[in-house]
Computed example of a mutant assay.
Amino acid sequence: MTTIAHDASTPGMRNRWLKDAAGGRDGAVGLLLLDTLAAVGFAGGIAGAVAAVAGRGALWPWALLMVGMGALRGLFAMLAVRRGAARAGMIKRAQRRRVVAATRAVVKLLLGAHKLKPGVAITGGDPLEIEDQIKMGRHAVETDADVLHLEYRTGSNPALTGITMFLPRDGRCHIQSGCRLWVSKAGNRGLILPQDHVRGHFRLAPREIVHIDGKPAADLSEGIERASTWLTRQVMRPGVQYDDAQCTLWAQAA
């Protein structure tokens, strides 16, 4: 437990400690600290009331202290919960903005100067469980649209961890999971690599996802690493913006 004692610390150091203890800019921890102080006052009111009854002293000052401190405790706790919820909402919105930015960056890399047309849908979010994959496959068949789902690691720093494709052909949906993004040495061409046992690779066209025989290079690992580095650089670039018309972004997979 950190305490402030009579030591050689400067007033500035003690002020910084108090700011940290109060939660800095967030304030939720500071409100909880005030709630603790109010709890001490409430307990003092109870002790004073017990002593007043035993000694036949005035009870009303202690009762007033108890009521006041109790009300303050409720107020501080409520404000702390609201502040914490607001903070959590801000973090969630920031994570979503980064996922959206990463998704648009990938679409821009895969399409180049082309625009996405009806026939292809792009989704971005958590990895899909088997039930979600079945639902997405049915939706792809019903709408006759290829679906490209970008899977992200959740947390304060989302990262692309995989790609799943849903390709409706002749009334059936072919699912390619565990795919990876590949970038050429020039950095101007992005392709989708399936799992190692699947032949060829995939290219995103404006109206469909196209399967192409053969691999884009003999050594695929360097292209995969380039893709990871490129995506991180694009998302972290200040003021990055992408044309909304370049992708149809679904907030949640159907």
Rank of each mutant, 00 (worst) to 15 (best):
V40I: 15
A49T: 15
V50P: 00
R56P: 00
G57R: 02
A58D: 15
W62Y: 14
W62N: 07
W62C: 01
A63H: 01
A63R: 05
L64G: 12
L65N: 07
V67K: 00
M69T: 10
G70F: 06
G70T: 01
G70R: 03
R73S: 11
M78K: 10
L79F: 09
L79D: 01
A80D: 05
A85M: 06
R87K: 08
R87Y: 11
A88W: 07
A88Y: 04
M90Y: 07
M90Q: 13
I91V: 15
R93V: 08
A94M: 07
A102Y: 06
A105L: 05
A105F: 04
V106D: 01
L109W: 03
L111Y: 05
A113H: 10
L116R: 04
P118Q: 08
P118C: 09
P118F: 09
G119I: 14
V120R: 04
I122A: 10
I122W: 04
G125L: 06
D126R: 12
D126N: 09
P127S: 04
P127F: 00
D132V: 04
I134P: 00
K135A: 11
G137Q: 08
H139G: 02
A140C: 12
A140T: 11
A140Y: 06
V141C: 11
E142V: 10
T143P: 03
T154V: 03
G155Y: 03
N157Y: 04
N157G: 00
P158Y: 09
P158T: 10
A159T: 11
A159H: 06
L160T: 04
T161N: 08
T161V: 15
G162M: 01
G162L: 01
I163A: 00
T164R: 05
T164F: 04
F166N: 12
L167N: 15
P168F: 13
R169P: 06
G171W: 10
G171I: 00
G178A: 11
L181S: 01
V183K: 08
S184Y: 02
